[in-house]
Design a protein around this nucleic acid. Structure first.
Lengths: 201, 201
DNA sequence: CTCACTATATACCGCTCGGTATGAAAATGG
DNA sequence: CCATTTTCATACCGAGCGGTATATAGTGAG
């Protein structure tokens, strides 16, 4: 990227990255439809025309916030795949989910889960975007578990696709519990219970 | 109830039960905040003043719809507790959840999950209501699993509270997957995977 | 300094939201 | 037949929504 984008005209008075980060926090707690422009602009410290000029509109802002979320918050997903065993992959995923959900002031679900469940009226492109992103991460987990199967790392009779779906369901269910006011201790216990259930050979 | 409520004045031209059932469908697909009065009244076949006169306001209508939902859709939860073994209880719960989620046109999560995750702005009383109802059903499951432990129906080292939290998380995660466009077959597979994970002694 | 250009702040737009005032319509009691 | 009571349908209300027109302020180029 050009650090010197040859500014002509009045310079911008805010940092787009910081503003986007603030917008992400609002979207994360309110959801896409629940986040109003008034709340967004106040959190970002800018006015509506500035937001429009810099990010396009509310929907484009959300997509960019989703980019940031995936880059900053969901990176643990990719690194978890590098664990040596399927069991270790699962535990890294569960603990990473736990960390995200208990990182803020009070526990809350993954932004993707919130967007999927909450956006019901319009937001067709929002849902599609989230689903597309999730499909690729789901695929990565399936491939990792298929590798585990090939390596003899999974007990016989355990289907990689089914196991991946199951694990993702637990992670998403953990998000629902977090949204429902579960304490970090309860979520931690849920991780341990799930790991105790993990198939052994 | 009095079947003859001594009508005086112009009789009502719609059936409140049917109207409430229609409202429930709208709330279930749109969520509380996503359901507009326009969509509600159209689905219910009545006008806004009629709705207001009969049900109070949107919030009161939602609480009554939640009553109906619990009575009609979540009755399987109570009957599941009567199964003889903890394993059978779990399977009945999972299959009951599956039936609800795949009952409509396309899969969707439990109304409680939708309400919890989606309602972010106002809706304080909505969340409280849902949480209160869920707390009692959670408690019933915990007590059932405690009975199972006392009966030697659970393997050693399995905590009833932790197991109940885990099972509920899977059910809720299943709802998220349903909202995300999972097919009934995938959800069915998720049930079977979960049952395959269920602890054995 | 002047001009072209860009970001800023204010005020505003059309629309939809949940909720209601109002008057006509349909029933019962006298 | 009339008064009373309750429901129905239309039209309306203030507020908040996402988005924007407009005018001003701050920058580099010439």
């Amino acid at each position: 990227m050009a650090a010197e984008p040859v500014t002509r005209g009045r310079p911008r008075e805010f940092d787009p990255e910081e503003a986007l980060s603030a917008a992400l926090q609002v979207f994360w707690t309110r959801g896409y439809e629940g986040a109003s422009l008034a709340e967004l602009t106040e959190a970002m410290g800018i006015t509506k025309p500035s937001l429009y000029a810099c990010f396009g509109n509310k929907e484009a802002l959300f997509h960019k916030a989703l980019d940031l979320y995936e880059r900053d918050k969901l990176c643990y997903m990719r690194s978890a795949m590098e664990e040596p065993t399927a069991r270790a992959v699962a535990e890294r995923l569960l603990r990473g989910t736990l960390n995200i959900q208990t990182g803020g002031n009070d526990p809350r679900a993954c932004l993707g889960v919130i967007s999927l469940v909450a956006c019901t009226t319009q937001a067709d492109s929002i849902k599609t975007d989230v689903l597309t992103r999730r499909a690729s991460s789901d695929k990565a987990l399936v491939e990792r578990l298929e590798r585990a199967e090939a390596e003899g790392d999974l007990p016989a009779g355990v289907e990689p696709v089914a196991l991946a779906t199951y694990l993702l369901a637990v992670m998403q269910g953990m998000g629902v519990q977090a949204s429902g006011g579960a304490t970090p201790e309860q979520l931690e216990q849920l991780v341990e219970t799930t790991m105790a259930m993990w198939p052994t050979n």
